[in-house]
Amino acid sequence: MSTSDAPAPPPAGLWGAFTATLKRDVTLALRRRGDVLNPLVFYALVITLFPIGISPDPERLALIAPGLLWVAALLAALLSLDTLFRGDFEDGTLEQLLLAPQPLTALVMAKVSVHWLLTGLPLSLMAPLLGAMLALPPGSYMVLALSLALGSASLSLIGAIGAALTVGLARGGALLSLLILPLYIPVLIFGTGAVQAAAMGGAGAYLAILGALLALALMLAPLAIAVSLRISING
């Protein structure tokens, strides 16, 4: 080996690979801002449809607002899931991730984190505004945002399993919702429960359970996502 050759950089550690994947995905997403904005616009639009379809009466709206806000946010997050791995699958990046020396679970965690940062978090920040439009009681805005932020992280993790299972299929979109929506139900129950309880002051227990669901999802979902990706790539 000649002395002019620079020594090969040592392989990145776990943290290095994680942050590199994170940065890459954020950069890619920010270059296509439309895709980031779509779920937010969808959320606002769907919420607009309900007063038109049901009734503009603030009392009736306030009654169903927690459920509407949560279901619409859940659907908006679902909408963006199909593209989570599809771009990487089509251009071969996913195969490189599978071959990387770092564990796939860590790289997958980075991708899911970016999905949450760019859909779940903005959705939960936007929710109080839409809540105000649906005449949600003033005391529950904070809980609404918190419950959505916690819950949407679980939704991203669980949804990524479905996205990984269907990424190899040409028309996976409709199938994805069939696979994932039943698994979303516990998060939905405790999410809406938190917002409903907030009006009476006492959403702590619900938020704690949402946190517990997130802890469980954080532990198990990355493994399932990694296995699913291997199934989809080898198939």
Partner: peptide, 15 residues
Amino acid sequence: AFARRDSGARAASLL
């Protein structure tokens, strides 16, 4: 949904 039976089998097992 899978064209290859083995992939479909493993995906269904995981789900």
